[in-house]
């Protein structure tokens, strides 16, 4: 089949403003959108610029706005997109070039929640014990690949880029609810601040956007509930 791909192009070094460029290419219904983008880049227009690596939805490089929703280009198939496909960069981050965005702020928010195990107790000579149900408690949020699909689909983030955003909260959740972690208080201080979890308006865009199927909004609610019941 033939597909028409409309791509938002912008090179701040050369262009006054963003523009849309259209490419018509042959594609199989089972092709990933990433396959189509690669075909355009390799066969038609080498200047088209996007990030990509693993090509099967685990590295998080190719999150972009596809037909108006955040998806990984390697995890959505042409047959699910129709014959006209519009591709734009993630919203809310500065554009470096075409579909490549500057994620400095995103990783800064991630670092703010201290995303590492905090536990100063001397560990045993073997593993620390953790029951399957304790492990299950934070399983969902261990899946995050930091692709930023959630954060950049969040209207609260669009209106206030200082909001720490769903991805950082997901990663805080991953540790707060880990029975081995002792850093909940430090993280909750960050999340309870003005730019923390209370900016979330429970819109659920983040959950819809997550390519890993993480129940992001629920994780945020878990954190809010913890703040309400145990600390405030």
């Amino acid at each position: 089949m033939q597909v028409r791909v409309r791509i938002r192009r912008y090179d701040p070094a050369q262009d006054q403003r963003p523009r849309y460029q259209e490419y018509v290419v042959d594609a199989e219904p089972e092709d990933r959108l990433l396959d189509v983008l690669n075909r355009i880049k390799w066969e038609i227009d080498g200047t088209l610029t996007f990030r990509r690596s693993c090509a099967h939805g685990v590295c998080g490089s190719d999150a972009m706005l596809i037909n108006g929703v955040n998806r990984l280009a390697c995890k959505v198939l042409v047959r699910d997109l129709g014959s006209t496909i519009t591709v734009e960069p993630l919203r809310g981050f500065p554009v470096v070039k075409d579909l490549v965005v500057d994620m400095t702020g995103f990783f800064k928010a991630y670092r703010a929640v201290k995303p590492w195990l905090i536990n100063d107790e001397t560990p045993p000579p073997t593993e620390r014990l953790q029951s399957p149900s304790e492990r299950e408690r934070f399983d969902d949020t261990t899946k995050c690949i930091l692709c930023a699909s959630c954060t950049t689909s969040c209207p609260s983030f669009w209106s206030n880029p200082e909001y720490i955003g769903p991805a950082a909260i997901v990663n805080a959740h991953r540790f707060i609810f880990d029975s081995r972690d002792r850093g909940a208080a430090e993280r909750l201080d960050v999340l309870n601040s003005r730019e923390g979890v209370w900016r979330c308006r429970t819109i659920f865009n983040c959950t819809d956007a997550c390519p890993r199927g993480i129940e992001v909004t629920r994780a945020i609610q878990d954190v809010k509930r913890l703040l309400l019941t145990e600390r405030v």
């Binding site: 590492w116 073997t126 620390r128 014990l129 029951s131 399957p132 304790e134 492990r135």
Partner: peptide, 18 residues
């Protein structure tokens, strides 16, 4: 592997927690 666990790696667990 024990070091990874101490760094916080979320391994799947047996019933006894190992």
């Amino acid at each position: 592997v024990y070091d990874l666990e101490h760094y916080g790696l979320p391994f799947s667990r047996l019933e006894d927690g190992r």
